[in-house]
Design a protein around this nucleic acid. Sequence first.
RNA 1: CGGGGCGUAGCGCAGCCUGGUAGCGCAUCUGGUUUGGGACCAGAGGGUCAGGUGUUCGAAUCACCUCGCCCCGACCA
Length: 567
Amino acid sequence: MRYSKFLAPSLRDNPADAEVVSHQLLLRAGFIRRVTSGVYDYLPMGLRVLRKIEAIIREEMNRTGAQELLMPMLQPAELWQQSGRWDKYGSELLRFKDRHAHESCLGPTHEEVICDLVKRELRSYKQLPMNLYQIQTKFRDEVRPRFGLMRGREFVMKDAYSFHADEDSLQEEYQTMFKTYQRIFTRLGLKFRPVEADTGSIGGSQSHEFHVLAESGEDLIAYCTHCDYAANVEKAVAKRDISVFDDAPSHHVDTPNITAVEDVATFLAIPEEQLIKTLLYHVVGGEYDGQVVAACLRGDDALQEIKLVRALAADEVMLASDTDLQAIHAVKGFVGPQDLTCKLLLDESLRDAKGMVVGANRVDQHITGFSVDCLDADFVDLREVRVNDGCCHCDEGHIEHARGIEVGQVFALGQQYTKPLDVLFQDANGKRAIATMGCYGIGVSRLIAAVIEQCHDEHGIVWPLALSPFQVTIITMGKSERVLENSKKLYQDLLNAGVEVLWDERKERPGVKFKDAELMGIPYHIVVGERGLDAGIVEIRRRAGEKHEIAITETVDSMLSMLEEKL
RNA sequence: CGGGGCGUAGCGCAGCCUGGUAGCGCAUCUGGUUUGGGACCAGAGGGUCAGGUGUUCGAAUCACCUCGCCCCGACCA
């Protein structure tokens, strides 16, 4: 490609509305342009990178025997009603009516459609296992799209769905996909970490997320300093000592206008961990739909809401309103677990807790010397793990936190979708059976951003060779016949040798060309100038690396062997 | 949806408080001089000042409404 006609509009200044480095560089280097909130054009260079990532994913997926297909973006409401997600998915699902007033939506994910396809074609266990995948544009009407390609509303995703005759077969494929994802992210040159994950609105029994470690990541990961344990904080568990304090007799104490845990602890001269805080939540969905529940934790812990949602098998929970509080005889600021007329959940760390301090459900009073054994409550894991908590999986490590960008997730779904959507087959005994399912996603466009977050310097992007829009750029210095002719010949020879090359033949000064080549992150720069030609050489520079002077006659061969090395 | 900020030329910004009909840098175009790290000189083009309503002799500027964008939170495979 000749640069002078190539649509790669670079910017000298960072656009004011770009916050994270990947967003800034993608805009500045001319890879993407915003169309509307969370929706982008991929310019030719951006598309080249996207295609390279897709190619690697395809290669690795195909290796495992998965088959590529393509499903529609538009989906009928009926399928979503059948799976039960039409009502559950929320406003992230963009719904609309077509001209015949038929309820439809844009696909945020494709479990429904794939099940509908497979149920019509699946007959025998002999067809299983089967893994079908696509690389396709998804639409999710995100509450807050941000950070460019990191969290868009429209984005490119690889989604795979596997079908099995039994759970063992699913587990096998789950492991295959797990390893395949590790291969893919390794080939993409990423520092990443697989972590245990909550199954979220997709559901299922088991899930791992793959996180690219980066400061700008939106997720918080908890990991052990000693063993392999790592989990999203939504899911992470850690050791906690049991709270037993002096079992003094229980009595009420006055705590005038003192409500916050910190203040109560100071006022009573006790550690925060001797308090039990009681949080009241309004539940949506599940057995406790519409009710208020109480969740108790040690004073120094924070509630992980996702865990509460899971414990209640609810769709969501919201902090209770003042009217909710009155309904169950709770007193704002002095809520305690005693005498509440609602479902009560206590964090595991409070099992057998004694000598605690709780709200008295009376204005300006707390109770000291409180034991939880007088409560009718369920004990579940509700707390968010903290740095320095002990690891549950080994006795030596402790928990640390890291930020991550979620670029992939694998789910063992079981029969969550195959059952309501009737994905049936005839098993080896001739009996009708329900298929077992797994699903596996990779955020392809998000990967572009994730790679840049890890691969950049003060001059711009530093693409791994496998992802760069071009492998090589020829920078022609000056505009004499001699440099132009030599550059042109080199350009054509490289093209003939199958190298992806961008020839910068613009009538720009050298500095401008160097800056642009660095900004867009092309791995190899070949500098053709008068000075070098006098000596019969060109200069090959590694982006953010070393320089070599090569005889002009050997440039193509040298270039090819350098490209070979890095593959 | 709650809190905060912003909207003036392709990009980055000034002007607004104190109303008088729009400006700077970069980019673009023309001519010239330059040419191994974002050149210089001269000239030119490009803006319904997000949109609407109101106040006023007069609105980018004041008031109200609407829309859009960004950040924090809530939310989220």
